[in-house]
Design a protein around this nucleic acid. Structure first.
Lengths: 349, 349
DNA sequence: CGTTAGCACTCGGGGTTGCAGAGTGCCAGA
DNA sequence: TCTGGCACTCTGCAACCCCGAGTGCTAACG
């Protein structure tokens, strides 16, 4: 569907005004705010037209117009100008990363904070994951006589841990030897390559220990493999709930449920690599998000070689959202994260 | 202050009824619900007395009575009967722990979930910490040519990680040797014992690498040491906000801010070992919690030998809270966590 | 034929009014 | 010392009204 030049301008103004004020915009206020050389009556006629085309609606007979989901869609796809962040904005964001981001795990949280604060909506960032999970290194730390902490580092630089219990007493020294041997044997391997070995040398007890460790590692790798994402880091819930669409208490409670990490993990729309995806209102499959919008992007290295590592970064807000701003910010933070990952995992390979 | 037997009974009924219904309780409804052999008029006289003693108040002239903070305090200290969880309740909770709690890190979250669901309030649990942080083991994992992941396990079985950047290229093999050497040298030592060594053998580059690693480890240990608690795991925010005292939207927003992890970390009242602490309303120093109550306990091993490991577990709710239930649940979950820790870190030492 | 002025109509929000219900305080009598 | 009774108070809720902002339509205008 293509709108006339004039209608497009009017639609864009309606979207802009409504996004800013959250109040349905009427014909008169429109001509007053933006000096279009038309009378309010003409604008009313055009608005009626826009309504016929499904771009805007009435909340009730005598209220101003608000954009429909389709109207937002048209705005995002055809009308919105695609701005880049200014240098100052870029520097502000970069600065926060350079100052605080020590640890891989903190990156996601930091990115989420930055987005939430700039956009006053919920920001969500998943931890970087690889599609092809492999063991990088494991470590065994003695805790008590027959307990040890197993620490597993995978090729996406994620660290996982688990407490193991053995039927026999073990010494730190033998655990070290075992860890060393297993690292040599299984380092770089994926879950399916791990098998409980049947060597002859080790005593009965040690064989048991070994098989417990290998089983745990296998399970941890599989678990990592199974979840496309783990629960995303979510930031800015309060920012979101300050928006006037959530003014009523029960609406707030529903929304609070919708932005629960566990809930979001399964609801994040799929995103293709490269661009920034905008999913508006009822384009969402899941109920609670039908009057909200996602702006999402993949960060990380492309999965070309199967060894790609990455995740998803984005914001979630009411459909009445500053799409232009959001896209610009999400894209920039995506680029920053991608660059960080590129440095971390090395330039090539 | 001591109340007459009859007034005590009436106060207890007022607290019970108000906790249950959240509606100010009047003299008549009181005699109807509990068959005390008195007329409403007499109860009114007693209520006037209780009001003089500061135990209850009026929201306005012609409303029922609600307990004052002092009233709750009297109730908790003198009136409340101290129940234990029934066997079934204990089993339900234990079952959840046995089924899900694989990983030390998950314990806190699980404990919080259990409490939040049973008590319909916010539950908070800090990760176990020791007062005397020592290095247990470290691990170095190569990421790219000149980057490595440093994994540090401390004596409280916490795992921490950081990405390090070296001025020279490093090999996994030399990292392994370095890690082994440092483990031998510094295992069991605390931050103050770590010093950048000045050996002669290693080449210039390797010395740089070593000093970077040692510096990072020191910093991580200190950081762990500095924070009495890290941010607690918080669960059940939605449960809390469903309570009628948060029915209005702006009240909800304020509360949402108050239960923010970062905010809570600094606001948790201090708790002595042993018992269960109840901090009611304006007994809290910090503003946002002045009309809420904490029920808290320390879990873990006593810090007798300086090597104790533990944390804090508890709930946060409106002053109108089922204190008896809360105390019973918090105490039981505390015991469960303590037992788990005892097993984990060994019986003695 | 597109644009505009004018007009009747509609609806939500805010303020007012008017109960009904639940409670209280107090007093006089058992 | 307790209790029945009564006048009084305050909240919550529903009904009501009115104002303002906005619409749709029609007729006139360039």
């Amino acid at each position: 569907m293509v709108l006339s030049e004039r209608r497009s301008r009017i639609l864009a103004f309606i979207v802009d005004d409504f996004v800013e004020s959250a109040v349905p915009v009427g014909s008169q206020s429109l001509v007053l705010r933006h000096g279009l050389g038309l009378s309010s009556a003409t604008v009313r006629n055009e608005m009626a037209g826009l309504e016929d085309e499904g771009m805007i609606t009435h909340p009730h007979t005598s209220a101003g117009r608000i954009p429909s989901h389709q109207g937002y869609r048209y705005y995002v796809s055809s009308l919105m100008q695609d701005r880049e962040l200014s240098n100052t904005e870029q520097m502000t964001i970069l600065h926060q990363f350079h100052q605080q981001a020590r640890d891989l795990e903190q990156w996601a949280g930091l990115a989420a904070s930055v987005l939430a604060n700039s956009l006053h909506n919920v920001a969500l960032v998943t931890q970087p994951r690889t599609i092809d999970v492999r063991l990088k290194q494991l470590q065994l730390v003695e805790l008590s006589d027959n307990r040890a902490l197993l620490v597993v580092v995978t090729n996406d630089a994620q660290v996982h841990q688990r407490v193991l219990e053995f039927p026999v007493a073990v010494q730190q020294e033998s655990l070290l030897r075992l860890a060393g041997r297993l690292n040599g044997e299984f380092g770089g391997k994926s879950a399916s390559d791990l098998v409980v070995p049947r060597k002859d040398e080790p005593s009965e007890g040690q064989r048991q220990v070994e098989s417990i460790v290998v089983a745990a590692v296998t399970e941890m790798l599989l678990q990592e493999q199974a979840a496309a994402f783990e629960e995303p880091v979510v930031e800015g819930v309060r920012e979101l709930l300050k928006q006037p669409e959530f003014g009523e208490a029960d609406r707030m409670l529903d929304t609070l449920e919708a932005v629960d990490e566990r809930r979001l993990r399964d609801a994040i729309p799929s995103v293709e690599e490269g661009g920034v995806a905008v999913v508006i209102g009822d384009e969402n499959r899941e109920g609670p998000y039908q009057d909200m919008s996602f702006v999402l992007a993949r960060y990380g290295r492309p999965s070309a070689e199967g060894g790609g590592v990455g995740g998803v970064v984005g914001v979630l807000g009411p459909t009445r959202m500053a799409y232009g701003e959001s896209v610009a910010h999400v894209r920039y933070v995506r680029d920053v994260l991608t660059e960080l990952m590129r440095k971390l995992y090395g330039e090539d390979e």
